[in-house]
């Protein structure tokens, strides 16, 4: 169920926020990570802003 949720979100370009937090804590502990909302908007812009990968 958890995996289905992750899959459906990634289908529309939203990677898991928890993985991002884990990455930031491990690699850049001194940097303040983006909030959940900022992260969402950042990914939204990244997916669609540059012309989304969509097929015919």
């Amino acid at each position: 169920m958890r995996m289905l949720h992750t899959m459906l979100r990634l289908m529309v370009g939203q990677p898991p926020y928890e993985a991002y937090l884990a990455h930031m804590a491990q690699r850049h502990p001194s940097t303040q990570p983006m909030s959940r909302t900022d992260f969402f908007r950042n990914r939204e812009e990244a997916r669609y802003g540059s012309g989304a990968g969509k097929c015919c």
Binding site: L8, L10, P15
Partner: peptide
């Protein structure tokens, strides 16, 4: 290159769904 944003190691079943959703269209 892991950055938690564009480069994220992803479970292969989850990624399968992502990739399939991206390739399947009207064609």
């Amino acid at each position: 290159r892991s950055d938690g944003l564009d480069y994220v190691p992803t479970d292969r079943r989850v990624l399968f769904g992502h990739h399939f959703a991206a390739i399947a269209g009207a064609g």
